[in-house]
Design a protein around this nucleic acid. Structure first.
Lengths: 130, 130
DNA sequence: CTAAGCATTGACCCATGCGTGAAGGTCAAC
DNA sequence: GTTGACCTTCACGCATGGGTCAATGCTTAG
């Protein structure tokens, strides 16, 4: 299949697919005239990439999972030592997200401290969510 | 005073001061040879800009406060209708920060949901912090 | 033949607050 | 006169995931 069809089947754009290929996450054959040709497996692969991106991983993170992208990913990953490297990536990413969250939360708290009259609704929602 | 001394007195860099000027947050006279010359008021101004940035405002936000930057800012802003526009900026910024925090938190929760074995320490700290 | 609708590579754009050179002019002191 | 410490204006770089042209080629139906 050509790139437009793959884009349609995976709900993304041709630009994104070329980007994934540029990042080493996707392969393609070429017609004599240079068009990218994909096997049906590419659909799974692209869905997995987008799944992981939507789960909060970065493109660089996803590169670490490249070995697992050709089969459907489970909803929840069991712990198995054969995937320890992937788990390290997950742990680091969670730590990064935690730091960013903490940093933004500090900023928001400083702001609310200096402007107390804009405090309550967000604060209540925040405490409830945690 | 010249830019280097202003940088030293405000604990920042010459690069940052030129950037603030480029953004319309700081003014300077020039010597015949083109050096920037600042009045002592500039020290207060720069400190206020950095104070607001450290409080979680963006450069664009600070531009809205440009009228108030020549006198010392209070630690906590009282509510007064004469500054309603500034308060709107504060409210919007707090909302933006809240959205970013919520978005990152959603991502982290999805990740932890898919990789449950990396859950606890961050989670506990998070709930405690809120 | 030609137009429509696909494809190609290349390259700039977004936001954020500066850091970090490069290449050069100015000023005070020795 | 020359060294060294200051100053000047560019202008690229960062991290993120593509968006959005531009200029051009391929393919197929009318």
């Amino acid at each position: 299949m050509l790139i437009g069809e793959l884009a349609a089947q995976t709900g993304t754009t041709t630009r994104a697919l070329r980007y994934y290929e540029e990042q080493g996450l996707l392969e393609s054959d070429r017609t004599p005239s240079g068009y990218r040709v994909y096997s049906p497996h590419a659909v799974t692969r692209v869905r997995n990439v987008r799944d992981l991106l939507a789960s909060g991983f970065t493109i660089d993170n996803v590169k670490s999972f490249v070995r697992y992208l050709d089969t459907d990913l489970p909803e929840v990953f069991e712990y198995s030592p054969s995937c320890a490297d992937g788990y390290g990536v997950g742990a680091r990413r969670v730590a990064e997200l935690g730091e960013k969250i903490a940093s933004l939360t500090r900023m928001r708290d400083i702001l609310v401290h200096r402007m107390p009259w804009l405090a309550s609704p967000n604060d209540a929602a925040q405490k409830e969510a945690a």
